[in-house]
Amino acid sequence: MISIDRVDHLVLTVADVDRAVEFYRDVLGMEPVEFPGERRAVRFGDQTIKLHASAELVEPTATHPVPGSANLCFVTSRPLSDVQEHLRTSEVRIEEGPVGRTGSRGPITSLYLRDPDGNLIEIARYDDEA
């Protein structure tokens, strides 16, 4: 049996890499990074989201890579009221929330929004940190 320790990176297929980088940088505060071969990504903490343009996929790839097919949850230590205000000033529509959910380590309160490709983005805060 193998043992997985953590997630290193995820890959999102996007319609427009520049637009995706701008969203994840300006709205979610992630750091843009570049890799050899003009590949681009955003980083937060020890994790990276690699951004692959749907018109220029990097092999190997998922069986059906299409923009807007992901559902991602990010955890924040900021009060969700601060997140809501930032989203409002960034003109990002909140799809749902705040609502109670269950995260991998227990109860969370979440806000849902969409990135420019329509991926569902959940921003959550653990209830015991509130």
Score class of each variant (00 low, 15 high):
Val27Met: 04
Val33Tyr: 08
Ala55Cys: 02
Glu95Trp: 01
Gly106Tyr: 12
Ile121Tyr: 06
Val17Tyr: 15
Val92Ser: 05
His9Asp: 05
Ile108Thr: 13
Gln84Ala: 10
Ile123Gly: 01
Gly68Thr: 04
Lys50Phe: 08
Asp82Gly: 07
Tyr24Glu: 02
Leu72Thr: 10
Gly45Asp: 00
Ala70Gln: 05
Ile4Gln: 05
Ala70Leu: 02
Pro60Tyr: 05
Arg43Lys: 14
Asp46Arg: 09
Met30Ile: 10
Pro36Ala: 10
Val27Glu: 01
Thr61Tyr: 09
Pro67Trp: 08
Ala41Ile: 02
Val21Phe: 06
Asn119His: 12
His64Gln: 08
Val14Trp: 04
Pro116Cys: 03
Glu122Gln: 14
Gly68Pro: 11
Glu38Asn: 12
Thr63Ile: 13
Pro65Asn: 06
Glu129Asn: 11
Asp82Thr: 13
Ala53Trp: 00
Glu31Ser: 12
Met1Ile: 10
Glu96Ile: 08
Thr48Pro: 02
Arg25Met: 07
Asn71Met: 01
Glu31Pro: 00
Arg114Leu: 01
Asp8Asn: 14
Arg101Ser: 11
Ala15Asn: 14
Arg78Asn: 12
Arg78Asp: 14
Arg88Phe: 04
Arg25Val: 07
Val17Lys: 10
Leu57Cys: 07
Pro79Trp: 04
Thr89Glu: 12
Ser77Ala: 15
Thr76Asp: 04
His52Phe: 13
Val7Cys: 05
Glu91Gly: 00
Glu85Leu: 12
Val14Asp: 11
Pro36Leu: 06
Leu12Gly: 05
Arg125Tyr: 11
Ala20Lys: 03
Val7Lys: 00
Val21Met: 06
Arg114Ile: 01
His52Gly: 00
Val33Lys: 14
Met30Thr: 13
Arg88Val: 03
Ser54Phe: 10
Leu80Ser: 12
Pro67Arg: 05
Ser110Ala: 14
Arg39Phe: 04
Asp5Thr: 15
Asp5Glu: 09
Pro67Thr: 10
Arg6Asn: 09
Asp117Ser: 13
Leu57Trp: 01
Val99Glu: 09
Asp16Ile: 11
Pro79Asn: 14
His9Glu: 03
Leu113Arg: 07
Arg6Ala: 11
Thr89Ala: 02
Leu111Phe: 02
Arg125Gln: 15
Arg25Phe: 03
Val33Asp: 03
Glu85Asp: 11
Ile4Pro: 01
Leu51Tyr: 06
His64Asp: 12
Ser110Cys: 09
Ile108Leu: 04
Glu95Ile: 08
Arg101Tyr: 09
Pro116Tyr: 05
His52Met: 11
Glu122Arg: 10
Ala62Thr: 09
Leu72Ile: 15
Pro36Trp: 09
Gly100Asp: 15
Glu31Gly: 05
Ser3Ala: 08
Asp8Ile: 08
Glu22Asp: 13
Pro60Asn: 04
Arg19Glu: 13
Pro98Lys: 14
Glu34Lys: 06
Val99Gln: 10
Tyr126Thr: 02
Gly106Ser: 07
Ile121Trp: 01
Gly100Val: 02
Ile123Lys: 01
Val92Lys: 00
Ala53Lys: 03
Phe74Leu: 12
Pro36Ile: 06
Pro60Cys: 03
Asp115Arg: 09
Glu91Arg: 10
Val83Ser: 03
Ile49Asp: 07
Asp8Gly: 14
Val42Trp: 03
Val66Glu: 12
Thr48Arg: 06
Ser104Asn: 13
Asp115Gln: 12
Leu72Arg: 02
Asn119Asp: 06
Leu120Ser: 06
Gln84Asp: 01
Leu28His: 09
Glu38Val: 08
Val66Trp: 00
Ile4Tyr: 13
Gly68Cys: 04
Leu12Thr: 10
Gln84Met: 15
Asp18Ala: 09
